[in-house]
């Protein structure tokens, strides 16, 4: 894939959305329900990416002790939820993942 092409498209879309009303005025209007629905898009996208990564990291569902992704990602979510500190959550989850994968369950 051409990364610059990918980035150019992302740039164009992002700036056009941000410029929509500010530059092109109020010819566009959003119905109220869409306004509210849009706030759920970022958590929905992130969950849609995370959940399969945790439950089926290799493509098939794997809820077993051999799946180090599951405890790691659960810990990341819990620490972030409790402390609100993203970096801390990531570091702690990496420790859990590393221990699980290479410490507790060799092979």
């Amino acid at each position: 894939m051409n990364h610059w092409l990918a980035i150019s498209g992302m740039m164009l879309l992002t700036v056009l959305i941000r410029a929509s009303f500010l530059v092109f005025g109020q010819r566009l209007t959003f119905p109220g329900w869409l306004n509210r629905a849009l706030h759920y898009v970022p958590p929905a996208v992130l969950s849609a990416l995370v959940v399969p990564m945790a439950l089926a990291p290799a493509g098939t569902v794997d809820i077993s002790l051999h799946n180090a992704y599951l405890p790691g990602i659960i810990v990341a979510a819990l620490v972030a939820w409790k402390s609100g500190k993203t970096l801390l959550a990531i570091v702690v989850s990496f420790v859990v993942y590393g221990l699980w994968r290479w410490g507790l369950l060799p092979g």
């Binding site: 706030h39 759920y40 970022p42 958590p43 929905a44 996208v45 992130l46 969950s47 849609a48 990416l49 995370v50 959940v51 990564m53 945790a54 180090a68 992704y69 790691g72 990602i73 659960i74 990341a76 979510a77 819990l78 620490v79 972030a80 939820w81 609100g84 993203t86 959550a89 990531i90 989850s93 990496f94 993942y97």
Partner: peptide
């Protein structure tokens, strides 16, 4: 894993309101 942990850490604090939690679970 780094991606997954990052996404989980970003999304978790946003789920304190019930509709947002429901949206995340459904997604």
């Amino acid at each position: 894993f780094a991606m997954g942990a990052t996404f989980a850490a970003i999304v978790a604090p946003q789920l304190k309101r019930r509709p947002a939690l429901g949206a995340a679970v459904a997604a």
